[in-house]
Write a protein that binds this DNA or RNA. Structure first.
Lengths: 348, 348
DNA sequence: GCTGTCCTTGTTAGCGCTAACATCCCCGCG
DNA sequence: CGCGGGGATGTTAGCGCTAACAAGGACAGC
């Protein structure tokens, strides 16, 4: 039994009847066709307003093949970045008159990816956006032969497909340069997972900046984005320091790991920026309120979403477009400072 | 098993031709009608598999009025909770064979809310889920007279509509009791925004537990979920303490504020749990890696999503269902401890 | 055998909309 | 003054699918 009683039957011919025209004229008005008399158009528009009519998307989709919907596939939206990307995407899509249909994959196997895209195709979405920071996602995407525009977000240039992203390398260089400018002889790095293009690009940026400054390139520590891996890295770094290695500045590939690292340092009696300077990446909402407030790199997800949708629209219109990567910015807070004045490692 | 690439036309009659039946029989097989000869069914199923056929959702929606899509409206998905809720919802929806279409409102005005629901209606979604922790969202929802099931998530019982949620009050009581059990004479509270039902429920739980234990109920401090408001609250609490008030335990309405509060305490020379015990709410991924690791209350968003979808399905089937709120759990870490022996900032 | 009743399958008519074509009317120009 | 042309509108035919009905076949009971 349907709980709704009275309303909602409202089809195009209701509007037509009220405006005293044919349903086709209504359709023309709605779709902004030329060749409709201004007076007629106004009459129809008023009828639409008065009735509160909305065209039925399914019927429209059936005949045009377009739903004005964009599908978004992603893995691992628990992270701050992906969640923000989703928000940015939705905003931009809505602004362009599109809806966003979302699929969160449990794992980025080719099968799961293909299935998601298939479902989107059956759903008649106009295009698919895929967040593909991880290699397996990128690989899975290769296996998909979609009959519609497929654009990749944050694939780190690993794909020739049309793609948008933030320039991770530039962000990493910003962070590294900041530390170098403060007088640190070199900068250590805690990476993200090896199978993340984003993480690798940050490593590259860090290395490039170090090399350009003729600074030694220390062996980096590997994390997996999680605070616990940052904590681990922090302990190991502290150990290296006790062993006599010069560790005065660390660029951590994301804020969560920076947080773990800071905790580990704290336990080891190391404070930022007194003993070590630390830079993160992401600018979590809580970054300014850590102890100490974290210097970090921020990505503009709203802009990213905007460009992604722009690219989709261009593809849909048959236009080629090679969007520039979004440039991240450095936010200097107080987890970074000058090199500690002559300080011999406790043990030595 | 190999779906072919080239000409995407693939309609039901293609399958019918290959299986040597009429398209209607194919439809029957797809929709699991009884009264199809097992042999025929198998033949059709094979044809579907071989061709890689997927029925066109738009056509189906046009005739059935159902898209097997659920619309999800939310405000403010930047927060951890809403993002997790989205993930939980998508998982559950997909498991039930539904897609999720997402709208992120910029502001929860009645107009924006109505517009979102209208768009969903035009999109022929089967139901709408609304995340309505804020009063204006709830109010806006009242203004909506949707011709489809509308279920609310986390409205804190402020709505008579069918709703699912986490028992915020129970979570708050858990936190408060834990602190009381540690020997604290009373527990201070930093609230969330006053226009959030969730926040108010936490206040109520806290107050109820205090009252039940015949503990004094201190004036609470008001925050807005943000770390900075937690920081502010922390400073004010520290001031109260300096002024002689007994402040040994604080229940903060979310982890982000707890984080800010901890930072403020730290600046004031107050450490947890040495001087003050602190409990948060949410269990952010970084909570275990704060200094100190934060005792907090966790909500099970997967379960929440599951129940929400279950409720939607029930409504769709015409069944009544009053789901029980999800019970949160307390995670004891090291930001809480027994009452400091002597109440002097110098401590220990 | 013949009816009646399943069970299985095919045939037909739309769902609400847009595209293509048909029509009508008004106007300018030879 | 009639004819051609183009702008404004209406009519018709599907888009791919499901629901309703129709049709045939098998089998029971008489």
């Amino acid at each position: 039994m349907e709980p709704e009683g009275p309303s909602r039957a409202l089809v195009m011919s209701d509007v037509a009847a009220r405006a005293g025209v044919s349903h086709q004229t209504v359709s023309r008005v709605i779709n902004g066709h030329p060749n409709v008399a201004p007076q007629t158009r106004e009459r129809v528009e008023r009828a639409i307003r008065e009735l509160g009519y909305r065209p039925n998307t399914a019927a429209r989709a059936l005949v045009t093949g377009s739903t004005r919907t964009i599908g978004f596939v992603t893995v691992n939206i628990n992270q701050y970045g992906p969640a923000q990307t989703l928000v940015g995407l939705e905003r931009a899509a809505r602004a362009a008159g599109y809806s966003l249909s979302v699929t969160v994959l449990d794992e980025a196997t080719a099968d799961a990816m293909r299935d998601a895209v298939d479902r989107f195709v059956a759903q008649s979405v106009d295009a698919v956006l895929a967040l593909a920071t991880y290699d397996d996602a990128v690989e899975a995407l290769h296996a998909v032969d979609a009959p519609l525009p497929l654009v990749t977000v944050q694939s780190g240039g690993a794909l020739e497909e049309p793609a948008v992203g933030v320039d991770q390398g530039a962000g990493a260089r910003l962070a590294t340069r900041h530390l170098l400018d403060l007088g640190h002889r070199t900068v250590h790095h805690v990476t993200g997972p090896a199978d993340s293009a984003e993480a690798r690009d940050r490593v590259e940026g860090w290395r490039a900046e170090l090399t350009a400054a003729r600074a030694p390139v220390p062996v980096c520590l590997h994390g997996d984005w999680s605070p616990s891996s940052g904590y681990e890295a922090g302990r190991r770094l502290a150990a290296r320091r006790r062993a006599g290695e010069e560790v005065t500045a660390v660029f951590v590939a994301n804020d969560q790991m920076a947080l773990g690292l800071l905790a580990a340092f704290h336990e080891e009696g190391l404070e930022a920026p007194r003993d070590v300077s630390v830079v993160g990446f992401d600018d979590l909402p809580e970054a300014p309120y850590l102890t100490p407030p974290l210097t970090t790199v921020r990505q503009d997800f709203a802009e990213l979403g905007h460009r992604a949708v722009e690219l989709v629209l261009a593809r849909l219109a048959g236009r080629e477009l090679r969007p520039q990567p979004v440039t991240p910015v450095l936010l200097v807070r107080s987890s970074t400072g000058p090199v500690p004045a002559v300080r011999t490692p406790a043990g030595v």
